[in-house]
Structure formats: C-alpha cells, structure tokens
Design a protein around this nucleic acid. Structure first.
Lengths: 154, 154
DNA sequence: TATTGTTATACTCTATAACTATA
DNA sequence: TATAGTTATAGAGTATAACAATA
C-alpha cells in the first residue's frame, strides 16, 4: 500500500490531521444531534433523509437513499417507516418496476423540513463563523481531494 | 447568534463545507472501524482509550479520559472493564484519593497497541495520500480554527 | 438468477440518572 | 455537600442475513 510515501516524513502529520478532523466533525455533529432532538424531537439520520428528498421532488428510491446516506437498506426501511407514520414522507409506487418505491416528502414534510433547515443553517454557520469566505473555500477544496481519495475505495 | 455574518452570503458555502467534512470523516471512520474489527477484533473507542494511555505512562483518571474522549463516565467504565478483562489495561489505586484510579496500559497492552498503531498509521496515511505536505499543513491549520470555535461552546 | 425492499436480530455506542464511597 | 466512579437502563445507529416479490 504505502510504498510511495516519502519515508516516514509526513506520517505524524497525517495522524494529527485525522485526529483533528475527527474532533471537528464530532463537535459539530454532537451539537446538531442534540439541537435536532431538543428543538424538533428528531434525529440526524431522519433529518438527512428528508434533506435528500427535499432536493429531488420526484422522489428517490430506497436503493439510492441507501447509497447516498452510506448505510445499508434495512436502516432506510426503518427510518422511512417512522417518517411515513408521522406523515412526513410517503411511498409512491413505481409504475415501471413494481418492486421499488419513490420516496417523497409530503407537503407537511416539506414544511417541517423547511423550518428545521432554517435553524440547522444557523447552527452550521455558527460552527464556521470565525472563518473568512476564502478560508471556507480553501477548506472545501482541500476536503474535496480527501473525499475523492476515499470514495474510490468505497 | 448569527448577526455578524454578512447577509446570506456565505451560508450555502458553510452548509456545503459541513456536508463535505461529515462525508470525509465518515468515510475514513468507517474504514478504520471495519479494519480494527476485522484485523484486531477491537473497536474505535477501545483503540482511542489505549491511544490516550500510550501517551501518558503514569496513567490517566477516568474523569480525564471522559473529557478527552468526549463521552460520559459510564461509558469509560464499560470500556475500561473490557480492556481490564483482556489484561490490556489496569486500574492502579491513587494513594492520595481513594475514590480515583490511574488507568494504565499493561506491558501486554502496550505491545498490542503498538502493533495496532502501526497498521492504523498506514490506513490514515493512505486516507490522505493524495495531499502534499503543504496541503496537509493547511488543512490542519484551518481545522484548528474550526476546533477552537467549537470547543469554546463545549 | 438477480435485484428491490423487508424483516428479524444483535451489537456498538451513547446519554441519563440513581447509587456508593470517599473527600 | 461535592466529587470519583459504578451500575442499570434505554434508545440511537448500524450491519448481517434470511426472506418475499418482482424483474
């Protein structure tokens, strides 16, 4: 694997970078989870699923949700069941393939998501509030490289 | 909260940055967790706890482990119990305060950690393998700002 | 046969709160 | 009273594998 790396030069730096990346995402994630719970009585995976649907009004198949959220299918069924029970999303039949569904936000789900998303945006903007527009851009770009590197093996 | 931010200018950028940060840490974390399980039959919190101890030969109190790992005390007890059962760490009495312990790696735990850490380093170096030393440094520095911003409110 | 989604299940991870013992 | 750690418990989050229906 690791043979091209210049002998033990940037290894400790990579480790420190990983620890810091993990700390950052944990700090923000904990904040988002606890706020979603206390303010909206919901969870991050449920919010994520609704966020996916909001961008695709025609709906998304279970399969595709599973890929995008990087979890296995059984979990998508469980989250969807909950949201259906609360009338926030619905399963719409696929006329061409009777095995699959298009999951869509209901009008109520759309309204609920909008009000959550507004607050969510405030939490996130706060989390990066000390960075300049340029710094945000740099971070985004650098993390783009990291993402591509690690998506390949996925 | 959000009043100083230049009106709706960098909000979408902050959101996109957060999604990308989360994706990156999830990709790497999934890889590390699954490798720790398949190669060493252990978990990330157990590895983390041992990593903390490795840097402090005199041992660390439960309390302090709880802060560093950002989880509540009951969980530290549970992880420690497991590692004690496998003779990888030990609880050493504190002569000055009979309520507390110093948790230390045993010699066996030290050996076990060393062999895991070598592999772990390879996984992490791979995860950032496409970045130059300069890019790693920039990322580390930018994430330092993010960390400080979000540690305050912690 | 392969694929879509479901069901059943088990385990990890975590927080909360009540508790014991020391300080 | 306050603090260090433990115990008990509940719920989130996830993966695996067997399954039914359809392709």
């Amino acid at each position: 694997m690791d043979t091209e790396a210049p002998a033990n030069s940037q290894h400790p730096e990579a480790l420190r970078l990983w620890l810091r990346l993990l700390t950052c995402s944990q700090l923000i994630e904990k904040k988002v989870r606890s706020q979603l719970r206390s303010q909206f009585e919901t969870t991050l995976p449920r919010f994520d699923l609704m966020a996916q649907l909001e961008r695709e009004p025609q709906g998304i198949k279970m399969n595709e949700l599973s890929k995008r959220m990087m979890v296995t299918g059984g979990n998508i069924t469980a989250i969807t069941d909950q949201l259906v029970a609360e009338h926030l999303v619905e399963r719409v039949e696929d006329v061409k393939d009777r095995r699959s569904w298009h999951i869509q936000l209901t009008p109520r789900g759309r309204r609920a998501f909008k009000s959550m998303a507004m607050q969510h945006e405030v939490w996130i903007v706060d989390s990066f509030g000390g960075l300049s527009a340029q710094e945000i851009k740099s971070l985004h770009q650098l993390l783009g490289k990291v993402k591509n590197l690690n998506m390949e093996s996925f």
